[in-house]
Computed example of a mutant assay.
Amino acid sequence: MSAVAWTAAGSLAVWMWLLLGQGLFWRTDQRLPPHTTPATWPSVAVVVPARDEAAVLPMSLPSLLAQDYPGDAEIFLVDDGSTDGTGQLARDLAARGCGLPLTVVSPGEPDPGWTGKLWALRHGISLARVREPEYLLLTDADIAHEPDSLRELVSAARSTGLDLVSQMARLRVASFWERLVVPAFVYFFAQLYPFRWINRPGARTAAAAGGCVLLRTEAAERARIPESIRQSVIDDVSLARAVQRSGGHIWLGLAERVDSVRPYPGLGDLWRMISRSAYAQLRHNVLLLLGTVLGLSLIYLAPPAALAAGLRSNDAPAAWAGGVAWLVMAGTFLPMLGYYRQSLWLAPLLPFIALLYLLMTVDSAVQHYRGRGAAWKGRTYARPGPDTGPRAAQDG
């Protein structure tokens, strides 16, 4: 066999292992666990960190204000140094009709050693704890909730004894680039953090989706949230890890009632969103970056390259192995495309999409060494703390 054929065979072997041995990551059936209606509804404080969110707040905040929740619930929106009138807009939206009570606070610039979002969460959670809520709903300012979203989250947490229930919000897929790139974003996340592994008893893998996290207040205090993760750029993974490490039970799945309304219409918008934290996920480690580039190349780029080379040179083993690996790869992408209601014909384009992600990751490293890494809305963050990054989400 040629070197190309051996490479294709290696890629096929990896894909067979991913298909069967990586927690069935490609399936999209991890939704809120079966639950019953609580006998009494616990109190909930909703904490929303917001920085320059005036463009999306009219589509998201009213959905929180209109939550149909039988128990006591209150919203705390933390205006994190916005310059576009986010805080006043939130007050105006709340004043337009009846709904959950809203408090807007502005904590000022973060203290050294804090990321902006976690600094905002710190102040929001501190304010909420005065009301002694049983649960905290941490949700981003670009997340819209169906009217029964909070009720369903609380019911699931109470019925199953979970300390943390997180849902991966359905991201917007309106533009061409969103339809091409966004489903793969969730697909790659699930491949790295298989939801089944996170949700099984005694799990060693931990992750959450920061846009929607229902957290038991007692578990937050036990895990010292957010102080224990104050430097984390990948704060959702770090939060889940801290809760799990302190003895809490966590759950992560795909959302049916929670949607992101933030637009990423062009490739440049998506590129900046992904590359700002990609190198932080690799702990700013050059060796991990090199391994990621080689791994992505073998897993995603080698199969179509081997098929093309094999057909061109009449190398049947290379063409066969490359073709089957590409077929398996595309097949694992189909459920996520179905979840996002996108054309299944996008599945064979996964190698091209993976190439884009590879380039975004490399660009993230380049920007880091130019002093512009992990930049978001006018802030640039230094190296993450020890809890940051995908490797920190697992024991061992």
Score class of each variant (00 low, 15 high):
L20E: 13
R27I: 04
H35E: 01
T36D: 13
A39T: 13
T40N: 07
T40M: 02
P42L: 09
R51E: 01
A54L: 06
A54M: 05
L57V: 13
P58C: 15
M59E: 10
S60G: 07
A66E: 05
A66C: 03
D68Q: 15
P70T: 09
T86D: 01
D92N: 10
R96Q: 11
R96P: 00
P101V: 04
L102S: 03
V104P: 06
G108Q: 09
P112H: 08
G124P: 05
I125A: 13
Y135L: 09
E146Q: 14
S149P: 01
S149L: 06
G161H: 07
A169Q: 15
V173T: 15
V173H: 10
V182C: 05
F185T: 11
V186F: 07
F188I: 05
Q191H: 02
I198Q: 01
R200N: 00
A209P: 01
G210W: 06
C212H: 10
V213Q: 15
L215K: 04
E227C: 00
S228M: 00
S228Y: 03
S238Q: 04
Q244L: 15
S246C: 12
S246K: 07
H249A: 15
A255K: 05
E256T: 11
E256I: 05
P263W: 00
Y264L: 08
P265V: 06
G268Q: 10
L270E: 09
M273S: 14
L288F: 03
L290W: 11
V293Y: 05
L294K: 10
G295K: 08
L307Q: 02
G310H: 04
G310N: 06
A318Y: 11
A319V: 07
A321S: 11
G322P: 00
A325N: 05
W326L: 10
L334K: 08
L350D: 01
L356H: 08
L358G: 04
M360A: 15
G371R: 04
K377T: 13
A382G: 15
R383A: 12
G385T: 04
T388D: 15
A392E: 14
Q394I: 07
